[in-house]
Design a protein around this nucleic acid. Structure first.
Lengths: 83, 83
DNA sequence: AAATAATCGGTTGTATATAACCGATTATTT
DNA sequence: AAATAATCGGTTATATACAACCGATTATTT
């Protein structure tokens, strides 16, 4: 049995991913453009959107900017969504 | 000539470090305790405080919690300090 | 229906985070 | 002044981020 339960991202990563996705959908952004604006490959952005890849602070800044929101806005009250 | 100019952390890392330090000083927190609460070695916390080490989102959450602030508060308007 | 774009889960290789630890130095407490 | 704690810049080893890319599948556009 392939026991590849490797989906153990911190919950904050998962919730952040959902928020990024909501912004993209809500503002009808195009992922390819968001990725380009953030200076990353769209396939890699997708991993952040799906929550399968955690990011560092520098990347959070790049992505939040390309989404047109501040990091603070992106993370507002996220602690409530995590517990 | 030892040309080790390796201090090229993203500016956001540097500014975040200053903010963490300000909170610790302002609230007269003890680094050793902050580190313990965050579940990290105090020497490693120091690197975040000095801005010599970038962190991932999960670590940001741990440290912000041990500082007694939310990530959103910690990052408020940080874009203005970076530019 | 065919063409095109988006999505998905994956890969490799390099850079970097993280945990744990260290000795020397500086700062604070006794 | 001596003892103790904090700071600093460093280390090693392992885990993981990131860039770049991929083929197959799904979704959308033509």
């Amino acid at each position: 049995m392939a026991k590849k339960v490797k989906n153990s991202r911190p919950k904050v990563v998962i919730v952040l991913a959902k928020r990024i996705k909501q912004i993209i959908i809500g503002q009808q952004l195009v992922q390819k453009n968001v990725a380009h604006d953030a200076g990353i490959d769209v396939e890699n952005l997708r991993k952040y959107i799906k929550g399968t890849q955690e990011m560092k602070i520098g990347m959070l800044l790049r992505i939040s900017k390309s989404l047109g929101v501040t990091m603070s806005e992106l993370l507002r009250d996220i602690e409530k969504d995590i517990e």
